[in-house]
Lab assay of single mutants.
Amino acid sequence: SEEELEEFAKEVLRRGITIIVNGIRITEVEIFVKVLREILEKR
């Protein structure tokens, strides 16, 4: 749901943790923004 997305976004921003994806360091915020864009483009 959109509320869950908002909560996830807030949690990500609070933690600001960097994770490893395919050997490249990407912040969770960047991943969230990318996923959010993909979701919005599909609408």
Score class of each variant (00 low, 15 high):
residue 20 I to S: 05
residue 9 A to D: 01
residue 35 V to T: 05
residue 36 L to N: 00
residue 18 T to Q: 14
residue 19 I to D: 00
residue 32 F to T: 00
residue 22 N to R: 05
residue 31 I to H: 14
residue 37 R to E: 02
residue 20 I to C: 12
residue 1 S to H: 08
residue 22 N to E: 04
residue 26 I to Q: 00
residue 14 R to A: 11
residue 37 R to F: 09
residue 26 I to H: 04
residue 37 R to Q: 09
residue 4 E to V: 12
residue 40 L to S: 02
residue 29 V to I: 10
residue 31 I to V: 13
residue 9 A to C: 09
residue 3 E to D: 11
residue 19 I to W: 04
residue 13 L to N: 03
residue 20 I to W: 09
residue 41 E to Q: 11
residue 14 R to E: 09
residue 43 R to F: 15
residue 8 F to Q: 01
residue 30 E to I: 10
residue 13 L to V: 02
residue 2 E to L: 15
residue 24 I to C: 06
residue 10 K to Q: 09
residue 25 R to A: 11
residue 17 I to L: 13
residue 35 V to H: 05
residue 8 F to G: 02
residue 7 E to Y: 11
residue 29 V to H: 04
residue 36 L to G: 00
residue 34 K to Q: 12
residue 7 E to H: 10
residue 15 R to V: 06
residue 34 K to N: 08
residue 1 S to V: 11
residue 15 R to M: 08
residue 39 I to M: 10
residue 27 T to D: 07
residue 27 T to L: 10
residue 34 K to H: 05
residue 25 R to N: 09
residue 12 V to L: 15
residue 2 E to A: 14
residue 16 G to A: 10
residue 36 L to E: 01
residue 34 K to A: 12
residue 18 T to D: 09
residue 32 F to R: 01
residue 7 E to A: 15
residue 14 R to D: 09
residue 31 I to K: 12
residue 42 K to L: 11
residue 23 G to P: 03
residue 32 F to L: 15
residue 17 I to F: 14
residue 19 I to M: 01
residue 22 N to Y: 05
residue 28 E to C: 06
residue 39 I to F: 14
residue 3 E to G: 11
residue 36 L to A: 00
residue 30 E to M: 11
residue 4 E to P: 05
residue 2 E to K: 12
residue 16 G to M: 13
residue 35 V to M: 11
residue 18 T to S: 10
residue 40 L to C: 10
residue 35 V to P: 00
residue 15 R to S: 13
residue 14 R to Y: 04
residue 32 F to K: 01
residue 13 L to R: 00
residue 19 I to V: 13
residue 6 E to R: 15
residue 36 L to I: 08
residue 18 T to A: 13
residue 4 E to R: 11
residue 3 E to H: 12
residue 40 L to E: 03
residue 26 I to Y: 04
residue 5 L to Q: 04
residue 18 T to H: 14
residue 28 E to P: 04
residue 43 R to M: 15
residue 33 V to A: 02
residue 22 N to K: 07
residue 2 E to C: 10
residue 21 V to P: 00
residue 43 R to Y: 15
residue 8 F to I: 03
residue 13 L to H: 02
residue 3 E to V: 12
residue 22 N to F: 05
residue 38 E to G: 06
residue 30 E to F: 08
residue 41 E to P: 03
residue 28 E to G: 07
residue 17 I to C: 02
residue 27 T to Y: 13
residue 3 E to R: 13
residue 18 T to C: 04
residue 16 G to I: 12
residue 12 V to D: 00
residue 36 L to V: 03
residue 42 K to C: 08
residue 40 L to P: 02
residue 7 E to K: 12
residue 23 G to S: 04
residue 38 E to M: 07
residue 29 V to A: 07
residue 37 R to V: 07
residue 6 E to Q: 13
residue 8 F to V: 02
residue 38 E to D: 12
residue 26 I to M: 04
residue 23 G to T: 05
residue 30 E to C: 00
residue 22 N to I: 08
residue 20 I to P: 00
residue 11 E to Y: 04
residue 8 F to M: 03
